[in-house]
Write a protein that binds this DNA or RNA. Structure first.
Length: 495
RNA sequence: UCCUCAGUAGCUCAAUCGGCAGAGCGGAUGGCUGUUAACCAUUAGGUUGGGGGUUCAAGUCCCUCCUGAGGAGCCA
């Protein structure tokens, strides 16, 4: 039984000198043999050719013949694998050839030009040691897996091409956003994740409580007495940092939040998750036009950054996930976005040579089919829809002079849908009070928010960008569950 | 939450009218001196998502529950 033999080999991990770990993992120093990353090898292959190197990574795939074999080694430093070649001059040739996929290895050898097509160079191994053997039931095989199956092993899927690319791009998108805001003078504000406001108006919230779920203390009405709860009141996970960040906007002028957001809605779609990340910039002394320019600049900058920083990953998406992705992104990066008012959009929809399940009508919200028609058929690029009827938008959006619409904007992009939603905020104290009353909300819940309009208020505007939707748009991935490391959706929070 | 579809070997999928549950890949074993999801041969591997029902006989038909996917709503 080969399993026995393999298990005995697990110990090389312990044989590694401790100094090798410290010296090589992150801060390689000259003089001693240090771990070289695959990224470095590809970047500096000319200098490294015919040099002795040490690499550590995981077996992606292995091919063996009688007297020689190949390993595709990936160490996570870049998208590409390093081809390792070894032959039966290696003492434990037969054993190494049986290392299961997923095994982590330390390989030392010489970087040589590859005699065969497919890779310019390869590592001719002088020694191969298993750091951590993989078991024989490693679920990832030398074949294509369905995304659906890979969702059942989220802890292993970053070892696949697609997910390694997705999550590197996700990281880059996050960095690009911070970089964009930082370079434009924005202050990054951490708004609370636990909120005492139970009336943010953005749908169902997750309750945060330490009360006994079976026998909570009861109030006079017979309901749970939240005055005895941890915070002395009812608390929930945030659905948006916007209201909180507005206070900081009216101090710093330009601010943004970037953090997790929670919605307890029973949404079962490709574009919804219960836990997702949102970016919410807020700018003072600004109107809706400034707001839209900011959103457009931001998206274009992020697109340009990712195309530049992750060319291999983007090429991979373009080939295997969404042909036409690169062309589309380049076009969006270089062209200006469209603008259309809600009123005009309704007219366009009513004139459309297409039958909608929901007939478009002024005063009704745009349906998904309407948004798709506008972004994919009429404009074929990102389009801002502005100035919605006040009845279908939030209370804090600034009332336009017509008294019927508010200064709101949604940015619709082909295939992904609404990616940005924002507005100019109502800065007039009396108008805001009126809107709160009109929408049936309780003024006492918004006292501090109203006060921002009493203490040196200013016109200001902001928007929310669904971070995962941006990642989807940039990668061509169609399901939000495949751009979140451990996605949380209704009936699904394993891992 | 509603509508539709699906669940068969570790994975991807077949199985005609209700009539012996199969293939490829992966695994194991053997072969092969430059592979590229290597290739060739042999072989093991199944409570057909759970429960109930109809029938001589159920992967297949009915009921129910669970899970997943797509669409809708809600939204980012």
């Amino acid at each position: 039984m080969p399993g026995h033999r393999l298990e005995c080999m697990c110990s090389p991990y312990l044989r590694l000198p401790a100094a090798a770990f410290c010296a090589t993992m992150i801060f390689p120093r000259g003089g001693t043999m240090a771990r070289t990353t695959v990224k470095t090898i590809f970047a500096d292959c000319e200098q490294l050719l015919n040099r002795e190197l040490e690499v550590r990574g995981w077996i992606r795939t292995q091919r063996e013949s009688k007297n020689f074999a190949f390993i595709e080694l990936n160490d996570g430093s870049c998208f590409k694998n390093l081809q390792v070649v070894y032959d039966d001059t290696l003492a434990d040739f037969a054993a190494v050839a049986r290392y299961p996929l997923g095994t982590s290895l330390q390989v030392t050898g010489r970087l040589v030009p590859s005699p065969a097509a497919g890779q310019p160079f390869e590592l001719k191994a002088a020694a191969i040691e298993a750091i951590g053997l993989s078991a024989l039931d490693y679920p990832l095989q030398k074949k294509r897996h369905s995304f659906e199956f890979l969702r059942t092993i989220p802890h292993l899927r970053p070892r696949t091409n697609t997910f390694m690319a997705v999550f590197r791009v996700r990281s880059l998108v996050a960095f690009a956003l911070h970089k964009f805001f930082h370079e434009n003078g924005f202050v990054y504000v951490h708004t609370p994740i636990i909120t005492g406001s139970d009336c943010e108006g953005a749908g169902q919230m997750f309750r945060v409580t330490t009360l006994d779920p079976v026998h909570p203390p009861l109030d006079s009405q017979g309901g749970a007495d939240f005055s005895q709860d941890f915070f002395g009141r009812e608390t929930n996970l945030t659905v948006s940092g916007q209201l909180n960040v507005e206070g900081f906007c009216l101090a710093f002028g330009r601010v943004y939040t970037f953090g997790p957001t929670f919605r307890a809605e029973n949404s079962n779609t490709q574009r919804h998750a219960s836990e997702f990340w949102m970016i919410e910039p807020e700018i003072a002394f600004a109107d809706l036009g400034d707001n839209m320019r900011l959103a457009e600049d931001m998206l274009k900058t992020v697109i340009a950054f990712v195309l530049e920083q992750a060319p291999q990953e983007m090429e991979f998406f373009n080939r295997f996930i969404d042909t036409g992705l690169l062309e589309r992104l380049q076009r969006v990066r270089d062209a200006s976005f469209e603008h259309v008012t809600y009123t005009r959009a309704i007219e366009l929809l009513q004139k459309a040579d297409m039958k909608f399940n929901f007939p478009p009508a002024w005063g009704k919200d745009l349906q998904t089919e309407h948004e798709r028609y506008l972004s994919e058929r009429v404009f074929r690029k990102p389009v801002f829809v502005t100035d919605y009827p006040k009845e279908i938008k939030a209370f804090y959006m600034r009332l336009n002079d017509d008294g019927r619409t508010v200064a709101a904007m949604d940015l619709l992009v082909p295939d992904v849908g609404e990616i940005v939603g924002g507005s100019q905020r109502e800065e007039r104290h009396d108008v805001l009070r009126g809107r709160i009353a009109e929408m049936g909300l309780k003024e006492e819940d918004y006292g501090w928010y109203l006060n921002l309009r009493r203490f040196g208020g200013a016109p200001h505007a902001g928007f929310g960008l669904g971070f995962e939707r941006a990642v989807m748009y940039l990668t061509g991935m169609e399901n939000i569950r495949d751009v979140i490391p451990y996605p949380r959706t209704p009936k699904s929070a394993e891992f």
